[in-house]
């Protein structure tokens, strides 16, 4: 067993542990932190697999941008306390068992996969320059297409996030407001 193997096992254990902690942690903030830890371990896996570009992007985009956004929202909502009401214990158990079954079944099924090797440490396809070349030669169309995705997400964020203009009051809006009031009442909020 070489150093890489040992590193793999350690990282695997770390990522599983931190992932579990995401699920288990009572406080949303802790969950976020543990998720960031998980991302870091996964980035480490990337490094181990010599996929440096992805390792970097993962940290920058995921751990850096996305998770901070999450954290930001949680803070904004003041959800850092253990405000989450507990779900029915049985339902939780059933959920966990069901998930466990899925894992067992899939692992049992995929156990028969051919034992093939993944190249660790070496191989240079994961380097920025090589990936970039492929991206802009072969994958330029999907790259452009993803811009549509971003455009729509952008529009979406505007549509959803923009506060409803109170000047434009139409029947449907009044109706909606009334319904919101009713809903709040009914939910006891």
């Amino acid at each position: 067993m070489g150093i890489t193997q040992i590193l793999f096992w350690i990282l695997a254990a770390a990522s599983l542990l931190s992932a579990l902690m995401v699920v288990i942690s009572k406080s949303p903030v802790y969950s976020v932190i543990w998720l960031i830890v998980t991302f870091f371990t996964i980035s480490a896996h990337y490094v181990l697999l010599n996929a440096q570009f992805l390792a970097v992007v993962n940290i920058i985009v995921y751990a850096g941008a996305i998770m901070v956004l999450f954290l930001f929202v949680i803070m904004l909502m003041n959800l850092n306390k253990e405000t989450e009401p507990q779900k029915n214990r049985w339902l939780k158990l059933i959920g966990a068992v069901a998930g466990g079954c899925l894992l067992v079944v899939m692992v049992a099924a995929l156990r028969d996969t051919d034992s093939r090797m993944a190249q660790l440490g070496s191989g240079n396809i994961g380097l920025i320059q090589n990936l970039g070349a492929v991206l802009f030669k072969e994958y330029v169309v999907p790259f452009e297409i993803s811009s549509i995705l971003f455009l729509s997400a952008m529009v979406g964020a505007v549509v959803i996030g923009k506060k409803e203009d109170s000047k434009v009051v139409d029947i449907a809006g009044d109706e909606a407001k009334r319904r919101v009031a009713e809903a709040r009442e009914s939910m006891g909020v």
Partner: peptide, 25 residues
């Protein structure tokens, strides 16, 4: 890949459209 992108490009606007009546719970 295109399938994935296509489905996401369809889905994300739909999430938004579904919630477009913002004051309706």
């Amino acid at each position: 890949l295109i399938l994935f992108l296509g489905i996401e490009i369809i889905s994300i606007p739909l999430y938004i459209l579904a919630g477009s009546e913002k004051l309706n719970l």
